[in-house]
Design a binder for these strands. Structure first.
Lengths: 339, 339
DNA sequence: CTGAAAGCGCTTACAG
DNA sequence: CTGAAAGCGCTTACAG
């Protein structure tokens, strides 16, 4: 099959190629009657503008990029990214923007991808995930002037726009809830150290525990994987001063923690209460269902996409604070048993 | 920053733009010495070919497409797709191919996406997932002559190349294993009816149960989600003629089934044995860990990508049968208790 | 309101 | 082995 071009439309309509371009792009320069005639013909012959030609003249690729730097085994199991992508897509599809996805091995590789995308003019902008403190990607994106939206924050994104939610407040709510139930020895299994949201949560945990006088609280670091979540839980639950409640930085580690408790013959929630972060469907698949810090991740992605498209269009909207995750109590939390 | 173009490289090297193009693409037409000089300069000034310009003249977009038609809540929770994508990416990145991802709402929308991608020349080829019997996407892709690799099969892909694995054999192995343990009442919670791999498994289940004389075996249909997996399990376990073992079409439903059994006060594996399909890390997160039909999904994706790139290059390699999923026994299966 | 033309940055026959 | 030129299919000033 031969792809129809703008010239085919122009010939059929008896106008110039320029007129067709104006009509298709909603620009002034053609009469309304002509525009409608051209649009009808384009539809009839199944015309779609060649994206390469358009990119070459218009300088917009109509595509945005998302580079993910997590090992395959974590990417697969973490519902977060796919949910985020689903949300991003709803915005992008509506404006016929494509999403270019790339899985990278390291922050350096990710930076190389950005440089290549920029050089190839392959994308008009990018999403930046898993922001770190003093993130080396930020100055590169600023130097390239590649429009970018940081998913996460606040802060540490240089001049890049953030779409973020208040993790400190959410964590504080979870701890206060556990304390209201009567817990005093609360532990936290944190995500990868160095990631900004991990650090924000660690700091918030320290703060709220200090304020409430929970002096035996502790954070153990893990990498968001089930294996490390399990290991951290095993360590916590076999310590002399066993916590009565554990807050996890994602749902995968929380589920692994639940299995470890059951394995060790401890009841959940009778012996240990468990709170998960990120309330994917996973949390309701297990028994007992997990109390979780929930938020609408597809919406989060959609907001990020809106901001990125606005930045690309030259109307940056600045930072955006998304809803704060809120606690959904389920069967995995209860008052601690008297011991 | 101004992006360097081929003209910048040519000027610096004191050669024509054509010579630079030949040098960069490994074509004959420049001496080895000149080629090296040109490559060094390109590297030095950070030149990357503009992908739009290249696509416009060369007719290749250096991108392939993947359209996924599953609701966000299932996409997020099913590790399969992300693992597949990870594997696809390893092949694509190695050849500087980009992956364009699109989440669609319906098979019709997916077909529209293919037509648009083709018309826009946005991708050089596509992956087709979740093949159905008499799949309407197949004739469209053939008509468009858009190179495509079907992930799944065998059969029902028209002239499109398949990368598939023998689900019938894997399912048979699982049932034979359960029978060897002593089970006679085996149920199956199947995936979405209409999907080819679901139908293949349903047929294989019927066949092996017939052969082994398991006349009370039954398949219940679900949609791969945890909710429906739980509902189906609840139905099966509350029936008078309760099965002693259940085989699930994915890991998410199996985990939901495990929770339901525990909820109902049934022991796993003492009262019910559970076998999951697709052995993601999830299966080892729960307690007891799930016996699963395991295969290397990133490798599956990588093979599909190799085939697609070959087809795009004009050297179609034909169908490819990937490894058959093999059973990994874990704690969720055991001989049935005497009743 | 419309048409003819230049130009985006490459690739690739075609001459030398 | 190398250079000059056409062409891919659009967009967008620039004339009319």
């Amino acid at each position: 099959m031969k792809r129809p071009t703008i010239a085919d439309v122009a010939r059929r309509a008896g106008v110039s190629k320029g007129a067709v371009s104006y009509a298709l792009n909603g620009q002034p320069g053609v009469s309304e009657a002509t525009r409608q005639r051209i649009l009808a013909i384009a539809r009839e012959i199944g015309f779609n503008p060649n994206s390469a030609a358009r990119a070459l003249s218009g300088a917009t690729a109509n595509a945005v990029g998302l580079a993910l730097c997590r090992p395959a085994r974590i990417l697969g199991i973490e519902p977060f990214y796919m949910e985020l992508i689903s949300g991003v897509e709803t915005e992008l599809s509506a404006r016929s923007y494509a999403l270019t996805l790339q899985v990278v091995e390291s922050p350096e590789a990710e930076i190389a991808v950005y440089r290549r995308w920029w050089g190839e003019r392959r994308v008009d902008g990018v999403f930046v995930c898993d922001l770190r403190i003093d993130d080396r990607r930020v100055p590169v994106l600023e130097e390239l002037r590649l429009p970018a939206v940081v998913i996460g924050g606040p802060g540490h994104g240089g001049g890049l726009a953030h779409v973020w939610s208040d993790d400190a407040a959410a964590l504080t709510e979870a701890v206060e809830y556990l304390v209201a139930l009567g817990h005093r020895r609360i532990a936290r299994v944190g995500g990868l150290p160095g990631l900004l949201h991990t650090e924000i949560r660690t700091e918030a945990f320290r703060t709220v525990c200090g304020r409430l006088g929970l002096d035996r609280s502790v954070t153990v670091s893990a990498d968001y994987s089930g294996e490390e979540g399990a290991r951290a839980t095993r360590r916590l639950l076999s310590s002399a001063d066993r916590p009565t409640a554990i807050v996890y930085d994602n749902d995968v580690m929380a589920i692994a923690g639940l299995a470890v408790a059951q394995e060790m013959g401890l009841g959940v929630p009778s012996d240990v209460s468990i709170v998960a972060w990120d309330d994917s469907a996973l949390c309701q698949l297990v028994h007992p269902a997990l109390t979780a810090l929930s938020r609408d991740i597809p919406a989060y992605g959609a907001h990020a996409a809106q901001r990125l498209l606005a930045a690309i269009a030259g109307n940056p909207l600045g930072d955006y604070q998304d809803e704060t995750a809120h606690l959904i109590p389920r069967g995995s939390t209860a008052p601690p048993a008297a011991r």
